[in-house]
Design a protein around this nucleic acid. Structure first.
Lengths: 125, 125, 125, 125
DNA sequence: GTGGTCTAGACCACA
DNA sequence: GTGGTCTAGACCACG
């Protein structure tokens, strides 16, 4: 579940780790109250520096997804509707920025992406 | 034509510049053989570092869009059918579908992505 | 009396335990000479590590509130007038004034602090 | 302005740095668009590791106070009303947690702080 | 054992 | 020059 990480990817290691956990939470593989792997344990398994895992966990904590408790571990938070909305918006923004960067490399601008998105959503309505 | 650049965008300045020129070429505002603005002139107009414009031009040269001739300037090259308008729309759609798949994995719907995209593009206006 | 402990609070568990006992002493629920619950018994009841209870008791011993006797247990000591209810209210007021000053420096008003305090305390209920 | 940092304080260095900048922004010493000191420059001046300054700046970025732009620097953000509300709530929460921790050390519980705050605010109304 | 913080120093992308 | 990321390893507080 946490075994796939690619050090050669342009995506920062800590982002890859954070994304895996976001997906696991979204898929309900990790439920509120569940403990995440320990910082050192996951670092060892992924063969990365513990500080890198800490960076991933801190990002998730900032998003309100998890809670780090000294001496106890890191746990998936019970989140209310208000926080959930904010967390979802954060995730959507993250995805959009990523696609805009990719688009720029390919020479596409935001309006073109917007147009494609509209027609894509329109088709499904 | 080259007046819109946003230093606050998450997209690197040189990518923004390169994109504008690609769009201009695709839209036939710039035709094969036409000269691009001089590096220093464009840098001054956009209030960016000349090195940033050079980086944009180098990327375009690497893509085969333009040709930099020592002492003469930078010129639009002949372009094949690969990057015409239709092809651009295809690329945009491909990106959009990819991001929608990612979003679905995270439990986000198209409307949330649309909202994030609008606010991201809106900030630049 | 010792049943309310919140592992999600930002306040360390051992501080929460020590606080409850200080309050009980101040409220005269525990009188000088009374025995505190045994370390293991309290740890089991609160579902915390015995070492955590020991840490709480040690802090109270350091403050002169209790006395740990080898093989016998932990007992409430005679307490002076310094930590009576009135003194406690004074301390609380001093802390509150300090935080309100800090808040003012940051441009926050008392209502905002009140709101944050309520939500912080509310989460524990 | 950024010269006072205390390595012996129990408050983490990065928190001390972040707080100074929050205060400077609240006091309008730093206005939207202003550049913060460079990571390396501030680190050298304060005699701390650049990573420590980065941690402070990242926290501020997470709060929406500043924006870090690769190759350009770190700048105070122009923030809208929605973000401002959230940022203020974040600050209030931070202060409240700090005072609750202090209170716990002194043996005071949240209700006592709440009571003192209510009477303190009540007196001023 | 757990996470929290900090240092020293590396390499990379961007302006 | 700027920030972005990562490593290796230290010491501390908490359970």
């Amino acid at each position: 579940m946490f075994s796939q990480i690619d050090p050669r990817s342009p995506i920062p290691l800590y982002e890859q780790i954070a994304t895996r956990i976001r997906v696991a939470v979204a898929a309900a593989e990790l439920r509120p109250g569940d403990a995440l792997p320990s910082v050192r344990g996951l670092a060892k398994r992924l063969r990365v520096n513990p500080a890198t895992v800490v960076q991933a966990y801190r990002e998730l904590e900032g998003d309100g997804f998890v809670e780090m408790r000294q001496g106890a571990g890191t746990f998936v938070r019970e989140i209310g509707p208000a926080l959930r909305t904010r967390a979802r918006a954060d995730q959507a923004r993250r995805l959009v920025r990523a696609v805009l960067e990719e688009a720029a490399v390919l020479g596409l601008n935001g309006q073109e992406i917007m147009g494609a998105l509209q027609s894509e959503l329109g088709e499904k309505v």
